Amino acid sequence: MTHWVRPALWALAVVAGAGVAVLAGVAVWGDLDTADRVASVAGASAALLGLVVSVVALARTGQGDGGRRLHAGPRAVVIDGDANRSAIGEGSQVVAPPAPAPPPGGRRTTRPSDVSAARDSTVVLGNATDSALGRNSERRTP
């Protein structure tokens, strides 16, 4: 969540709680005709606010703001998936039997909208099972 979303949600919860208290007070201490009118205005206002929030959320989703940003520094390794039985990093070695075959259809993921891979970096956007990544790394089977 961005830095302003959490306080905005708390403010909305406080305002909603105050609104419920006011509606209950009008229903108890006022007449039912007034409570009915206040509840109608409050319901229409809440519906309009919900419409605005949903349109804003849909517009932001279409721009790709919901994805992660992956930035790999020099000689870094970033993997967005499984890395079982892999030799990762400079000079690493793994001796293990091959991993079982993945299930049909694979793993579906949402890919990040921005990836930066600097000089000497390795970025794998998916599964890196049974791999050797990095300088002088070695993956062997017994």
Rank of each mutant, 00 (worst) to 15 (best):
T34M: 08
L9M: 13
R85G: 11
L12A: 13
A132G: 06
P102T: 04
G50W: 00
H3D: 14
W10E: 15
R68E: 15
D65E: 15
A76C: 10
R135P: 02
P142N: 03
G126H: 03
D31Y: 03
P97F: 05
A118F: 00
A11E: 10
T122L: 09
L32R: 15
Q63F: 13
A13G: 10
P98N: 14
L70P: 01
V115G: 04
R111A: 08
R140Y: 04
V55N: 12
P74I: 14
G30Q: 03
D80M: 03
A72P: 03
W4C: 15
G17T: 04
P97Y: 03
G66R: 07
S92L: 10
G67T: 12
R111G: 05
D31E: 12
G67R: 07
R108W: 12
G91N: 08
T129Y: 04
A16P: 00
A27I: 04
A16W: 07
G66F: 10
S116I: 10
A101V: 03
N136Y: 11
R75N: 13
V124M: 02
P74T: 13
R85F: 01
R68K: 14
A44Y: 06
N127R: 01
T110E: 14
A117D: 03
R119A: 09
A101T: 08
G105K: 11
L9F: 05
V77N: 06
A96E: 09
V56I: 12
G134C: 03
E138S: 12
I79A: 00
N136I: 08
N127A: 02
D82I: 06
R6E: 14
L51W: 11
G17Q: 03
